[in-house]
């Protein structure tokens, strides 16, 4: 195992983020505050409790998931797309590193960053609403696993994309709708029966509900299903990544 290489990639990625740290922190804090002003206070005050939880508190796990997913994908996809774009990928390919080590460095850094952002959002939210975390261990479990899974997904997108449009098209056209329709801001039981069925095909639903359950012990789906879903999602990403590495897809000519 080439730990020096994993560390080199990880430190490089973290350093790049650190250079724009204020931007990185200010933007999620600001966005979260806006969500709470609009949804939590303005609209939320007119919405009754959802599943016995005040609306402001209800949306906290969803908001964190929203940002965790989008940030994980965007950090990881940019991180691997950039060396491809500038040509410095030659260094990764000619170093004595395994693909697993490359993945560990990039996904590790991306997951670290998005988890930090999630924690910042959690703290910001606490300033607006009162809530408690019923199962901190499970909360951390969902947080870390989701960050890793979606960082891997971002990594895959970054390798697949050969221009900037492609880099943004999946997060924009697929991930964002899935997150918004995955019960981030509502309980699925509030939807008409037909749409409830449709929503069950949305993988993000399971992440959001599992995560929300770790806060308030309320969930639209069973917690076992949630856990199985996130694990199979992770397995799928691992499968794709290994296929990419085995074939050198879009990495080697």
């Amino acid at each position: 195992m080439n730990f020096h290489a994993v560390k080199a990639i990880y430190v490089f990625e973290m350093a790049r983020w650190w250079r724009t740290i204020y931007q990185s922190i200010v933007s999620p804090v600001l966005t979260t505050s806006l969500y709470f002003v609009v949804f939590g206070s303005a609209i939320g005050s007119r919405i009754a409790e959802v599943d016995g939880v005040g609306y402001g508190a209800f949306i906290v796990p969803g908001l964190i998931m929203l940002s965790l997913l989008t940030q994980s994908i965007s950090y990881a996809s940019f991180a691997i797309y950039f060396p491809k774009f500038t040509g410095t990928i030659y260094e990764l390919l000619s170093s004595p590193v395994s693909y697993f080590e490359i993945l560990l460095g990039y996904v590790g850094a991306s997951a670290t960053k998005s988890i930090l952002i999630a924690v910042i959002i959690l703290c910001t939210a606490r300033l607006f609403v009162d809530f408690e975390i019923a199962h901190p261990f499970w909360m951390a479990f969902y947080l870390v696993l989701t960050a890793i899974t979606f960082s891997m997904m971002g990594f895959i997108i970054g390798i697949w994309a050969d221009n900037f449009e492609k880099l943004q098209v999946i997060p924009l056209l697929i991930v964002t709708p899935l997150v918004f329709l995955g019960g981030t801001f509502y309980s699925v039981s509030m939807l008409p029966p037909f749409w409830q069925k449709i929503t069950l095909f949305n993988p993000v639903l399971y992440l959001v509900n599992g995560f929300r359950w770790s806060f308030y012990e309320v969930s639209d789906v069973s917690i076992t299903t949630s856990t199985i879903m996130i694990l199979s999602f992770l397995a799928a990403c691992i499968g794709i990544v290994f296929w990419i590495f085995k074939t050198g897809y879009k990495l080697k000519t």
Partner: peptide, 11 residues
Amino acid sequence: STVNFTRGMFG
């Protein structure tokens, strides 16, 4: 830092 990076990549 870029030179140190390469050294790290080579373990």
